[in-house]
Design a protein around this nucleic acid. Sequence first.
DNA 1: ATGATAGTTCGACTATTGTCGAACTATTCG
DNA 2: CGAATAGTTCGACAATAGTCGAACTATCAT
Lengths: 109, 109
Amino acid sequence: MKQYEHPPAEAFRLTAILHALSDPYRLSIVQKLSVLQPQPCAPLQGGRPKSSVSHHFSVLRKAGLVRTVVVGVNHMNSLRDAELEARFPGLLKTILDAAARSEGLPAQD
Amino acid sequence: MKQYEHPPAEAFRLTAILHALSDPYRLSIVQKLSVLQPQPCAPLQGGRPKSSVSHHFSVLRKAGLVRTVVVGVNHMNSLRDAELEARFPGLLKTILDAAARSEGLPAQD
DNA sequence: ATGATAGTTCGACTATTGTCGAACTATTCG
DNA sequence: CGAATAGTTCGACAATAGTCGAACTATCAT
């Protein structure tokens, strides 16, 4: 059962994390994973072709945000939240809170 | 005295903020401003040509991170920290803490 | 006015990123 | 085994972003 490479927590680079989360689609993946974990890629596709989805998951993995484990035919994704919290305390939660807040008011004053 | 356009706080987009901070040079500008505010562009140049510096300040302004006020011959930059805090509580501080932490350990274990 | 200083704008170029179809790999099921 | 499913990799292309010199603008000092 072939698995993925994930950078060790010491190798996380803040700028890579911020870049990974600066894409709206990737941010939405992380938001959804924060609600339900783990999930395979399929329910997170959002209408995109598989090759695009795969690319975005690769960016998330390389930044250290997501861990992907092959379980049978599915690739189960989860957030590396504990490691992230240890390395950059409060970062993920604060960004997710900000993201939630952004969504509340996209249309009104 | 000609001044700059700055987006209102309601127009801040999280992804634009994350993107702005995902560039190491721009992140370093924000870090330096967080220590000493306001500052003109010159001391923050970091060896880059003026046109590049100007470009990066423009990105920071458009994201809502920096406010630039023309004072005589200098363009004084400061963080829009209060507005940012109101819109995205804890975000700037958490990222700056993470950035400070990143710098502590670029070489050791 | 002239010159000096601080920074912007423009335009060209390069590099990085995102998109997507097609072919490929791994696993399960029949 | 062969077919189906889930996702990756490759390669081409488009779009976005960063870099930098040169010309420009605004302000201050003389």
